[in-house]
Design a protein around this nucleic acid. Sequence first.
DNA 1: CGAGCCGTTGAGGGGATTCAAGCTCAGTGG
DNA 2: CCACTGAGCTTGAATCCCCTCAACGGCTCG
Lengths: 243, 243
Amino acid sequence: MLMRAQALYLENATHPQARACACCEVRRGSLFGVLDASALDRIRAHVAAPQLKTGEYVYSRGESGGAVYTIRVGIVRFERTTEGGRRRILRMASRGDLIGQEALLDRPYGDDAVACTPVELCRIPASLVRELGDTQSTLRYELMNRWQRALDEAETWATELPAGSARRRVLKLLLLLARHADAEGRMWLPQRNEIGDMLDMTLETSSRQISQLRREGLIELLDTRQARVHLPALQAALQAEDA
Amino acid sequence: MLMRAQALYLENATHPQARACACCEVRRGSLFGVLDASALDRIRAHVAAPQLKTGEYVYSRGESGGAVYTIRVGIVRFERTTEGGRRRILRMASRGDLIGQEALLDRPYGDDAVACTPVELCRIPASLVRELGDTQSTLRYELMNRWQRALDEAETWATELPAGSARRRVLKLLLLLARHADAEGRMWLPQRNEIGDMLDMTLETSSRQISQLRREGLIELLDTRQARVHLPALQAALQAEDA
DNA sequence: CGAGCCGTTGAGGGGATTCAAGCTCAGTGG
DNA sequence: CCACTGAGCTTGAATCCCCTCAACGGCTCG
């Protein structure tokens, strides 16, 4: 609610979007990766490339932003607040993901989208996507794919995370987060109270669990927010827990 | 896995689908409600109207069915099984809902879809929907709407249900299920072990909670599978719980 | 009428919460 | 330079809620 994406970072003063799109490392595999060069030309002028710091909001629930975003760098979490006032973290998105698709239907955003790390985005007006969708069938197909991917991710979180003991849930979460790890195997580690909001436990419990896993050598804390995990050991521990 | 939708119930031997579509009470507000008469004509011959009994599978996870379904009568639940072998119920669908949309992307179904009550469906081949989508922009828009609705429903379940005490979770579930109630205010009540799989608790705990709510007069058990709830009292109890 | 499923209820134990204290560390200002 | 502060993390002790194990009753069906 407090901080919102406003600042528009442009890498190059003369041809800002040309650089942002043409050189984009995530274009392949991203929403507009399916477009040809002429279509890409049309969109460049309308796409902004905001940058957010940790904790800033991409958008919040109920807001009618009129734009979708692709994530170029960083990790974004989706959260909602229950009527009782408790925060729940529903799923994560990272590089290459499309978020805020509700805007294509002229609906207000359904979740709060918050930067977990410094984040670089592409902001694409919803009207532009709709317009392109009318002529480009590949874009339509890709859009439906994105929707299904989001649904799948949400259901995976809903299936795997809320069930079982605190230890099991933490292990599962670490495995899901490890999918967003960088090339050196470092992964983003949430704060203890964030873990609590993801797994419906108190911050004390999540702290105890993380500390325990650290003592067992399954996870190595680098920075406060970064860790390296031993995947095979983690999976073994999870299986032992499920048995 | 065991029982699958195969039987093709036709209400009328001469013009089966003509009746199924033209007379369909849920057409307004359903996927093909946006189509005009000529488009409706084209689809009639390809749409089947299977009926399922309680507990039968519409489809199961991993299966490549090549069709989407709209629900005409009844309630369907989506479930997945964790790697540890525990069943999790993720969300519900009822009259007017579109399910199995993954098929439009040539993907296998992502969940098991199981009849909670006797169910009547329309089975629509994915190729037919894709074909119509290429020419009918209203259908495309409606499809995206359905996708977003499914995502929203999944996130609502994920937000509201797994958090808090057993009592709070049961209250929340009853409120969500009450949205599928019929005109007389009767709602479908899951078995105790189904409630357990929805809320991650044992069947004993869910039984205790339901019994307690019955004693408090917040819920009235009619049939074994049917109940009438007192919405205002339920909401008050929930607020008291959240406070 | 016995078998089996489903729901209910009780007793006991264990794991998570609650309440509380102390720790590290970064930022601030005397 | 260093005390001061506050945020985030860790750990301990006591309580409580839910799970586990168990027994029993109603109901349907073979």
